[in-house]
């Protein structure tokens, strides 16, 4: 076991796959010599060379287009979109092109692309560099969506995403880059569409994603001090969505909370809540409660941003007040 930061786990996971598959290539802005603006691709240029680790112009449509075209010929491609907010400038390639290619060609084409992107708040970057946009991608049929919360999951889900034959949007959380975790020895390959129970409990289920997972765990510790036993689920993969794990947990706890960093309307938790309401209504002892960033653009000031994004305090207080 080695301890790695979430940041270093990104390059570690990519390198594992690049050693395995000599066809795998990556492109993006400042990813080569600079090692990425978040230093998530440090060392890859040295090991794999400029033909496989390619810097691009600031041209997000050109980046995703080149990735898609190469992938359609069978070459797996990792494309980096520096900040997930920039997905908006190349959303056509994601939403209209990659996502629909297999379906509208009657299965003639497939697009093995992983779009890696730095997502989420907490860095005081303001409204255009801090968003959690996983719900933008989740709503498009034909895209798979992953958001790991630990270094080990970064490696394992990266491998699973790269080996998947469909387009996968891989959200790396900016505020988790400095976090550390153990990485098992040897090749690590995880599975898309699998959530994980990261803390067992009996009184309520808290489903969280990415940065919200460690916050939910910390809130669960405080709830335990009050005698409330919270089960915490790291959702990990929004598409495919592991509803079985969530439904099984709610069957046991009879209460569901979602903790979502995306703004409230149409956040991923709304879909989870809808499924649980449809399929586990009679297991519930109270209303499903969504704890989300409010429906506002994110503010830059530290004090304001901290009020906006669900905090340990807010999770703890919301559960404590509503669990009855």
């Amino acid at each position: 076991m080695a301890e790695l930061t979430y940041r270093d786990a990104v390059a570690y996971g990519i390198a594992q796959e690049m050693r395995r598959d000599p066809n795998l290539v990556m492109l993006g802005e400042d990813i080569a010599g600079a090692g990425g603006v978040f230093k998530t691709t440090v060392g890859l240029l040295d090991e794999f060379g400029p033909a496989r680790i390619r810097d691009t112009p600031i041209s997000e449509q050109a980046i995703l287009g080149a990735a898609m075209g190469a992938a359609m010929t069978g070459i797996p491609v990792i494309a980096e979109i520096m900040f997930s907010d920039f997905i908006a400038v190349c959303f056509d390639l994601l939403a209209n092109e990659m996502a629909k290619s297999a379906y509208m060609t009657g299965g003639q084409l497939s697009v093995p692309v992983v779009v890696r992107t730095a997502n989420g708040g907490g860095s005081r970057f303001g409204a255009q560099h801090s968003q959690s946009v996983e719900n933008w991608c989740m709503m498009i049929p034909g895209l798979k969506v992953v958001a790991p919360s630990t270094p080990a999951d970064v490696v394992g889900l990266m491998a699973a995403s790269i080996r998947d034959p469909d387009p996968v949007v891989f959200f790396e959380h900016k505020s988790l880059f400095a976090s550390k975790g153990e990485i098992p020895e040897g090749e690590i390959v995880d599975e898309l569409g699998t959530a994980r129970v990261v803390r067992e409990g009996t009184d309520c289920t808290i489903a969280a994603l990415a940065l919200m997972v460690p916050r939910a765990l910390e809130a669960a510790d405080r709830l335990a001090d009050e005698g409330i036993s919270a089960e915490v689920i790291d959702v990990r993969s929004l598409v495919p969505l592991d509803t079985k794990t969530v439904l099984a947990s709610v069957e046991k706890t009879s209460r569901l909370y979602t903790v979502e960093e995306n703004p409230r309307l149409c956040g991923w938790g709304a879909e989870v809540a809808s499924i649980v309401a449809d399929e586990a209504f009679w297991d519930l002892d109270g209303p499903i409660v969504r704890i989300t960033t409010p429906h506002i653009p994110l503010p830059a000031a530290e004090a304001l941003e901290d009020m906006a994004i669900p905090s340990v305090d807010r999770i703890y207080e919301t559960v404590s007040k509503t669990i009855g």
Binding site: Q61, A62, L64, G65, A66, A67, M68, G69, A70, A71, M72, T73, G74, I75, V77, D92, L93, N96, E97, S101, T105, L109
Partner: peptide
């Protein structure tokens, strides 16, 4: 490799098959 109905995108995608070659 396809007919594309959103103006412009497929020029970017065409770069990809060229890159592959």
């Amino acid at each position: 490799m396809g007919s594309y109905a959103i103006i412009g995108a497929h020029l970017c995608i065409a770069n990809g098959t060229a890159w592959s070659a």
